[in-house]
Design a protein around this nucleic acid. Structure first.
Length: 882
RNA sequence: GGGUCGUUAACUCAGCGGAAGAGUGCUUCCCCGACACGGAAGAAGUCAUUGGUUCAAAUCCAAUACGACCCACCA
């Protein structure tokens, strides 16, 4: 360690952060010890995308987890924070495909096996970037237990779960309507579709009734799907169309004869009240089709191109086809009118391509039976969402859940563990790869081509990472995990699925608390996105300002669950705070050369009692806030205690006592208080700012191996001396009063002046007398006189008044009496206002009857204080006016 | 259509039943033996609107307005 006196007066995080991370990691401080007699505390990290880069969302998410992990570790819990990464099926495959496209290749040119080799190469190359970035943040996760959703253990867990669910009839395969992304070329689940309102048209098309002159008009937003219409629906009670039910219409352009039928689904008041029904390309039409036995005609293929069933339109892109269909309808006189209409259009979450609903053979998880216990555990309070309002979000979604489409037509992911026998058609679902058909002994087996939704494996994360399906020690000890920390954007994708998976496969909830945080937005409140180019790279922030500053900036002044706007100004403010901590610590350490530990009891003075009390209160609040996951409030309390109380008041008061002590004991005493307060402060600050606190900690005369394994301070109520705190506040008020006069009368800050305090209350006068040296130094006084009364009150003086004290500053030369009078009159008015407010309350009988006694007592105190202050000013005004 | 969040000083946000707060910015003064990434003092707010509950409302309730987000199968 460098000599404390040579340290820079500006804190330079770049010089210390890497050093300490390496120190912690190489000493295995992050890895929980084998001491299983201790109480466990465990968190699994939401696994970031393996090929991704750290963004501010990750920075926030992991800062919160690290705060909890470090806090609990210091409290003595056997703490495991388990890190890992996600294979992120579509996202990763897309990145590698993009890279291939640079060489003019597609994945099909390489073939499945070669392509997967490429993805693994990619993973090995870039897979560590995110984890090394997490290290830069200071994340105290146990890298020795790091996992990956496609590692051997997790893959085993996936198969186990798939087979279990299949055997319980909770996984099935079938032809249903699903969301299809024509660009990604795969099915996606309902929640991977993002609906966005877009202005479109509602086209009104005439469908002529068979064998009649009559026609009915259907309204549609997607005219190209009419090519697949196999019916027309009206509401059963719609008088307009009642007579037509059971008749047929002739589908324009196609000339197919299709039935008119009645269905409750139809809304009489929307459009024309007539719905064209395309069972193969619309989820509602699909349902109606089933109810009325309609034919399903697929007219759009997997690439979004019109299918051969589309007749002359075959080969056209679906949107080009829309144009052509409109043109043809217009030409042939079928188009009645075009209305403007805004409606929600589904886009692929990954690539923003407009999703096409279509019938497809896919694998599904039956959700209702799984959702039921998952709802119950939450409503029963076994799993708690913090903030609580997210409970509702979760329950609403779970109650309206639909089956989960889990198969994806991708190559990167967990291959579905299903084999088909080409000889007898047997379907084999197996945990291990089969070699022969159990039914016909054929070896002509073919594995299902598809992979599983990436969230299928993430859903198992809290137990697959601890060794399941093996009965490992870690699993027995750390499961259920203590808390899950994650963003509100993945409650459905991830949290909900972990909950039902944990209950179903472990028979136990995966975590007791779910701590949801908001999203990081840019300065204007917009989501950060690549297309807007408004993203902030957290690594850049760390390089410039340090990880501690980034961490603290992300959490301070933030309400739980609310979104957070990122502002550089705030980062700079926190950088200044870090610098403040650095310099205050430097001050303490620079005055430690002759320090030795003494027993400070019975030697403390008012200011010592005060700062120790404030420290206890801060420890208490910060501890409670952390237990309640209120990071913002905890950070705010730390900031205020350190900057306002410790730096601005205590250190200032410590200076004369250190430099010009009455005796050697005084210096020793102050050194001890400074040391102890700093030491505790560093420890309660450590979870928030791990690096700077470790750096300073190591300079403390008394320190252990590392701050991160030192003890979390426990607040001592007996060290909260409220009387001393009150007295100190009285003194601070007087100091502020004198300073205010100095500033208002432009007294040179360097000039030492004289002040007179009139204090009637004998006990208070005694306290002020005992502590007069503090007032002298803080207000920079040459002399201070404390009296019970003043016989001849000087006219050539300015005054200020608190409820206890009249302050007089005699001024040489002439003071502007008029100005002084108006200054005092303003104060007088304020005191009078306070007094009337309080007395009015006290005159109110209902208030006296119903308000709690302590509130009434407080109000009486306020009235008394205001009265004394008012009287003081009044008397002074009389003198000035005569 | 349903739901959630927000509306407090010029800006960014805390506070969420008992005397309006912070940071930034602004004004004035100050390099005083930790820090000018600093210190001292100061100006600055009908706490969106309207009703209600209460002795007491920025804080609870209800409506409204304006933002933002989420869910949803009105073609």
């Amino acid at each position: 360690m460098a000599d404390i006196n040579n340290l820079s007066s500006v804190y330079e995080p770049q010089l210390v952060e890497d050093k300490w991370y390496e120190f912690w990691k190489s000493n295995d401080f992050f890895a929980p010890s084998a001491d299983y007699s201790k109480i466990p505390f465990s968190i699994v990290m939401p696994p970031p995308n393996v090929t991704g880069a750290l963004h501010l969302g990750h920075a926030l998410d992991n800062t919160l987890q690290d705060i909890l992990a470090r806090f609990k570790r210091m409290q003595g819990y056997n703490t495991l924070w388990l890190p890992g990464t996600d294979h992120a099926g579509i996202a990763t495959q897309a990145v590698v495909e993009d890279a291939l496209a640079q060489e003019g290749l597609t994945r099909h040119d390489l073939g499945r096996e070669k392509f997967l080799e490429k993805v693994w190469e990619w993973k090995d190359l870039y897979g560590n970037r995110i984890t090394s970035q997490l290290s830069l943040l200071g994340s105290s996760c146990d890298w020795t237990r790091e996992r990956f959703t496609m590692d051997e253990g997790c893959s085993k867990a996936v198969r186990e779960v798939f087979v279990n669910l299949y055997e319980k009839d909770l996984i099935y395969q079938g032809n249903y309507i699903i969301n299809w992304c024509p660009r990604c070329n795969t099915a996606i689940s309902d929640i991977e579709v993002e609906h966005e309102d877009s202005s479109g048209n509602l086209w009104h098309i005439k469908y002529f009734v068979e064998d009649a002159e009559d026609y009915i008009v259907v309204a549609t937003t997607r005219p190209e799907t009419m090519l697949g219409d196999t019916g027309v629906a009206v509401h059963p009670e719609d008088e307009r169309y009642k007579d037509l039910i059971g008749k047929n219409v002739i589908l324009p352009l196609v000339n197919r004869v299709i039935p008119i039928f009645a269905d409750d689904y139809v809304d009489k008041d929307f459009g024309t009240g007539v719905v064209k029904v395309t069972p193969a390309h619309d989820p509602n039409d699909f349902e109606m089709g089933l109810r009325h036995n309609l034919e399903q005609i697929k007219v759009i293929d997997n690439h979004g191109i019109m299918h051969e069933n589309a007749g002359v339109y075959q080969g056209l892109d679906r949107f080009a086809c829309r144009k052509r269909v409109i043109e043809d309808l217009t030409e042939q006189g079928y188009l009645e009118k075009i209305e403007e209409h805004s409606h929600a259009v589904g886009h692929c979450q990954r690539c923003a391509t407009i999703v096409e609903p279509m019938i497809s053979k896919q694998w599904f998880v039956k959700m209702k039976p799984l959702a039921k216990p998952a709802i119950e555990k939450v409503t029963a309070g076994e799993i708690k969402f913090i903030p609580a309002r997210f409970t509702k979000t979760y329950i609403n979604w779970m109650e309206n859940i639909r089956d989960w489409c889990i198969s994806r037509q991708l190559w990167w992911g967990h291959r579905i563990p299903v084999w088909y026998c080409d000889d007898c058609g047997e379907v084999i679902v197996s945990k291990t790869d089969p070699t022969v058909c159990p039914k016909c002994n054929s070896t002509n087996l073919r594995q299902d081509e598809d992979v599983l939704d990436t969230w299928f494996s993430s859903a198992l994360w809290p137990f697959s990472t601890l060794g399941w399906p093996e009965a490992t020690k870690d699993l027995a000890y750390f499961y259920p995990t203590s808390v899950l920390v994650t963003g509100r954007d993945i409650i459905f994708f991830w949290v909900a699925r972990m909950i039902f998976s944990g209950i179903e496969h472990m028979g136990e909830i995966p975590f007791a608390d779910v701590n949801i945080h908001g999203l990081i937005l840019d300065g204007q409140g917009r989501k950060m996105s690549k297309s807007l180019g408004n993203g902030i790279d957290p690594i850049k922030v760390i390089e410039k300002y340090g990880a501690d500053t980034l961490r603290f900036s992300l959490i301070t002044g933030v309400t739980p669950g609310n979104d957070i706007r990122f502002h550089w100004e705030k980062v700079e403010g926190i950088r200044n705070f870090a610098n403040k901590i650095w310099n205050a610590s430097r001050f303490v350490l620079m005055n430690m050369e002759d320090y030795k530990t003494i027993n400070v009891e019975n030697k403390l003075t008012l200011v010592d009692y005060w700062i120790i009390s404030r420290l206890q209160e801060t420890i208490k609040t910060v501890t409670r806030n952390l237990e309640e996951y209120d990071y913002g409030e905890a950070a705010k309390n730390l900031y205020e205690f350190i900057w306002d109380d410790f730096c601005d008041w205590y250190i200032e008061l410590a200076k004369p006592r250190l430099f010009r002590p009455q005796d050697n004991m005084e210096r020793l005493l102050v050194q001890n208080v400074l040391h102890d307060v700093l030491s505790d402060t560093l420890r309660i600050l450590h979870p928030f700012m791990p690096f700077i606190t470790e750096e300073i900690y190591q300079y403390l005369p008394s320190h252990n191996r590392t701050i991160m394994l030192d003890k979390w301070p426990i607040a001592d109520d007996e060290k909260i001396w409220t009387d001393f705190v009150d007295d100190m506040q009285d003194i601070m008020q007087v100091v502020r009063g004198i300073r205010n006069i100095r500033a208002e009368f432009n007294i040179n800050p360097g000039a030492k002046i004289e002040a007179i305090l009139i204090i009637k209350d004998a006990a208070k006068r005694e306290i002020f007398t005992q502590n007069s040296s503090y007032i002298e130094s803080l207000a920079n006084l040459a002399s201070l006189y404390i009296e019970d009364a003043l016989d001849t009150k000087p006219k050539q003086a300015v005054s200020a008044h608190t409820h206890l004290v009249e302050i007089y500053i005699p001024l040489e030369g002439v003071i502007d009496i008029e100005k002084e009078i108006s200054r005092l009159e303003k104060d007088f008015k304020n005191a009078e206002n306070d007094l009337t407010k309080a007395t009015n309350k006290l005159k109110n009988e209902k208030f006296l009857a119903k308000a709690p006694p302590e509130v009434i007592a407080k109000e009486k105190g306020k009235a008394e204080e205001a009265k004394l202050k008012k009287e003081g000013i009044e008397k002074r005004l009389q003198i000035l006016k005569n």
